[in-house]
Amino acid sequence: MGSDRIEKLLEKYFEAATSAAEEQELRAYFESGDVAPHLEEYTPMFQFFSQAKQERYTRQVPLKTRSMPYRWLSVAAVAVLALGFYFGNQYQEQREAEYAYQQTRKALGLIAQNLDRGTEKVAHLETFETTKQKIYKNQ
């Protein structure tokens, strides 16, 4: 590559008038190691640009995977709460039903007791009836 052409390109380069391809040509020229002595002073500049492009981001790309379980945790918590309410309600209803059953039983028991007492009294009446019958027959 002629140094004349490179000189012209450099002139354009410093006026920011070079195309991307021309700049690539300049970088390649100074990378080659075969630089005309009077252009040597530009070498560090272009070599630096080429070298700077080699730098790498060495850390792991950070991906927050922790946030996902947390989100699922809240969903799970809501599910547990909802189930709790559902089954809690069922249990409560069952207890209420049992209580009502017991109360009804008690009430029915009371009625039965009183009914028994009633039939005792009616039993007296029966004795009265048989005695009355006896008296009728004797007449």
């Binding site: 380069y13 410093f14 006026e15 920011a16 008038a17 002073e41 530009y42 560090p44 500049m45």
Partner: peptide
């Protein structure tokens, strides 16, 4: 504006580099 700033930046690097050189 980009062209002007680029040209200035390149020239500034060249000047300082030659100075140091």
């Amino acid at each position: 504006a980009v062209r002007v700033a680029l040209s200035r930046a390149r020239k500034a690097v060249r000047e300082k580099l030659l100075e140091k050189h």
